[in-house]
Nucleic acid binder design. Structure first.
Lengths: 123, 123
DNA sequence: TGGTTATTTAGCTGATTGGTTAATTACAAT
DNA sequence: ATTGTAATTAACCAATCAGCTAAATAACCA
């Protein structure tokens, strides 16, 4: 899982980390500020922040003893791009989706499709 | 990690599983067909499919000895909805983003809204 | 009935994850 | 110089993960 998208998805697969991003959406925050809503230790937060930073989802600066975090949304653009490829699978009703696929299949009758399973038609 | 969104993100955080979804986007496929592009064992594929099924990203039927898989995109809609909340952080330049935020804040205080802006976040 | 094909289950690894406590670094204010 | 606050590192633990081989199950075919 060395690819960027996998790292991003893995970073997002934790509710604590998503909550941190949500908070950062309303502005920079220090580590303590980010930790406040949770009942876990500071080192645990530090680890979460490291995961987010490693995924490029946050950046950090220094200000006195504080290390303010800032949201970096570029990887989310990548996520949005990926998921967009599947939009047609949920944005159309089932029947319209079937019709769409049938049409696509008909249009690509240039080559032969190796469909070895029968199609079910129980509506 | 018992929340649906975390399960979905975790399922997507693996290139093999995303490749399986990509293949299923062009139609149902049997386990062997899905395994073909990869150099990993069949049991490994079975496990990946179980992760995807558990996340609601695929469904399975029976056809003779085959257990065809089908893409189920509903969880992806959820992902798209989540990431959409962050669109403004990448779709505008920084300066315009600042302006946008200031404007939204002002509108929230006056009770007017020019743009739909959801605020609820659940994890 | 027995054999072949498709797939899953069982049981084993090594790596990673999310958490902990205790110690440590970095800086500010006295 | 000493104290206090912010944050990190070190070292550990239990649970999960992604892979493997070998064996078991399920359905078809001859």
């Amino acid at each position: 899982m060395n690819d960027h998208l996998s790292t991003t998805f893995a970073a997002l697969a934790d509710p604590t980390r998503r909550a941190i991003l949500a908070k950062l959406a309303s502005g920079e925050a220090s580590v303590s500020e980010l930790a406040e809503p949770f009942s876990i230790s500071m080192p645990a937060i530090t680890k979460h922040l490291k995961v987010l930073e490693n995924a490029g989802l946050i950046s950090r600066t220094r200000s006195a003893q504080f290390r303010p975090c800032k949201l970096e949304a570029a990887p989310l653009k990548e996520v949005a791009g990926w998921v967009e490829e599947y939009r047609r699978f949920w944005s159309e009703s089932f029947d319209r989706l079937e019709a769409y696929l049938a049409q696509v299949q008909a249009e690509e009758h240039t080559g032969k499709k190796k469909k070895k399973h029968k199609k079910k038609h129980k509506h």
